[in-house]
Design a protein around this nucleic acid. Sequence first.
RNA 1: GGCCCCUUCGUCUAGUGGUUAGGAUCCAUGGUUUUCAUCCAUGUUACAGGAGUUCAAGUCUCCUAGGGGUCACCA
Length: 464
Amino acid sequence: MITTRFAPSPTGYLHIGGLRTALFSWLWARKNGGEFLLRIEDTDQARNSEDAVKAIIKAFNWTGMSYDGEAIYQSKRFDVYKKYIDRLLEEGKAYKCYMSKEELGELREKQMANKERARYDGRYRDFDGTPPEGVEPVIRIKAPLDGMITFDDGVKGEINIASSEVDDFVIARAGGVPTYNFVVAIDDYEMGLTDVIRGDDHLYNTPKQIVVYNALGFDIPKFYHVAMINNEKGKKLSKRDGATDVMEYQTLGFLPEALLNFLVRLGWSHGDQEIFTIDEMLKLFDPKNINKSSSNYDFKKLEWLNSHYIKNMAHDKLALLLKNYGVDITQNSNIDLILNATKERAKTLVELANQINIILNTPERYDAKASKKAFKGEAKDIISEFGELLKTTDTTEYHKLMEDFLAEKEIGFGKLGQPLRVALLGSMTGSGLDEIISIIGVEKAVIRIENAVEFIENSNKENS
RNA sequence: GGCCCCUUCGUCUAGUGGUUAGGAUCCAUGGUUUUCAUCCAUGUUACAGGAGUUCAAGUCUCCUAGGGGUCACCA
């Protein structure tokens, strides 16, 4: 039985890096038929917020990942932590420290000045005198004084850290509120975690948590520390790098399956395979194939993946999603025609919605460059004549209609194609002309042509 | 600064002593397409550097350099 968790602290939105470790954890649990739990790390009453919790869970739901049971809030478990703190105190494995913050600050400064590692000096570790007046003590745990703290990391291999690197850290603040490393160890134990997959930045928390595990006689879970995700320049991802908030990807028109596919391949691989459906991820994911090194974020590759998923998505599903981007074609009888004409040139749902709008709506203006180039010479007469033909024809084979029209006049496709495209779409690029006519119908196509003819006549007048 | 981790095409990666170092993306070129896109084909580009072990090293060892993480009564 594998049990994993995702344990965000609600200080902001769900970050793309957090989503990846969540994905890894989720995959590993689900693959093994185990449990995936969600824990909200909100022991810092000053920083966490209700809204952040909601935002994180919303983003999480968007991705389609599911957690088992109810989310666990650390802020509601202080009595549990207190019980363990009392026990450690009773067993002499933790102690009260009366050092003031000022004294601690001085000590740290002195150590830094001597180019030493800043660490608590253990002065109250075996204190049995009379405590100083007016100082509310913190509680510190007794960390080992010598030897090594060793663990076998599932990603990095064996990690050895000298005990001298771990001081008697605070497990309960003055006032009794427990601290992060303590509650994480308690909860990971109580929630029955077997595998802890988390970011690299927690590597140094691990020996501290092991100190807690050992003091309480808990079994130590398997740890996996996944290297960070950097921006395209190889530097730490920051808000300035654009989309770091998972929900921003929805706004930008990305599909969750594309984002997940992108993320799963960042730091993990299965041979040469690039495209992974959720089912394939579930079948193939194994943390032993997680990379040791950090990886850079590549927006172009995400776009490629996204266009892949757009192209391969069922049309009714795509139409439903498109409603969030200002286009509703769910009731349109030409839904297949519309999507086949547009989906191959869209990298995002935003672009797709755009393409569709361009076809569905009569152009309000013509792209300046395009009209200048396409609406010159005989263009007006040609499209005008073609418009007349369109009115009278009863064929729906518009491509053939155009070809025959051109053959009779002995002119090339471009002579009709370019001005017709600008007349129909307002620009020089886009879907096939026959597809467009099929979608909007002859009537609307003729109107657009007539509009264009009028536009050309007017601009000719102005110029003369 | 101490400690720890990392280092294969621009980017994501394959590779577990013997490969013309593979794939994907990006970029470029050509083809298909009335255009754009798609699609197809082709091409450019990589083992951070240096010693050592070995018949043989991207793969093992050591050193150097570069990058990152971390050193709270934050999480």
